[in-house]
Structure formats: structure tokens, C-alpha cells
């Protein structure tokens, strides 16, 4: 039980870390730090860095939360700690 609880928590932390890396890359990375470089690429009429800061990051945030919900549900069932 003790070991299973530890394994569950480290699986959870692993998932959170992966998601936070993407979260950081799309907003602080593409939207701010690399925005000037990305602006030379165009997505339709959008300079890419500008697009990430004012559109793209938000779409990816939504996708991240639903991905988290799905994966977390799988981890819950795998370690048998899901709700009835």
C-alpha cells in the first residue's frame, strides 16, 4: 500500500512535469523569449511569435487541461485510487 501510494504520486508528478514543460514552452518560450525570432515566420497574416502570445498559447492551455484530465483518470485507475 505504502509503495503503491509512492508510485502513484511519482506517476502524478511525472505527468505534471511534462505538462508544465509544454505550458512553459508555449507561453514564456514561444510567446515571450523566442517571440522576436519566431516573428520572422508567418502563420497566415500572423507573425508566429505574436500569434503564440495572443492566440496559440491559449488554445494549447485548453488542450493541456483536457489531456491532464484524461491521463490523470488513467493513472487513477491504474493504481486503483479512482472514485466510485
Amino acid at each position: 500500500m505504502e509503495d503503491s501510494a509512492k508510485a502513484y504520486w511519482s506517476a502524478t508528478l511525472g505527468l505534471l512535469t511534462k505538462i508544465l514543460i509544454v505550458w512553459f514552452l508555449v507561453s514564456f518560450g514561444a510567446g515571450i523569449l523566442f517571440a522576436p525570432a519566431l516573428n520572422s515566420i508567418h502563420l497566415g497574416g500572423y507573425p508566429l511569435g505574436f500569434w503564440f502570445a495572443q492566440q496559440g498559447a491559449m488554445y494549447i492551455f485548453i488542450a493541456l487541461i483536457f489531456y491532464y484530465r484524461k491521463k490523470m483518470g488513467e493513472i487513477d485507475r491504474q493504481f486503483d485510487v479512482h472514485e466510485e
Binding site: 507561453s27 502570445a53 495572443q54 492551455f61
Partner: peptide
């Protein structure tokens, strides 16, 4: 472009 900080800040918090 700088206004994007409100957009990212006020939505990224939900993640």
C-alpha cells in the same frame, strides 16, 4: 503585442 501578457497570464493560471 505586449498586451498578450494579460491574455497568457489570465488563462495560463488555469493550467
Amino acid at each position: 503585442y505586449g498586451g498578450g501578457l494579460f491574455l497568457m497570464g489570465w488563462t495560463g493560471g488555469y493550467v
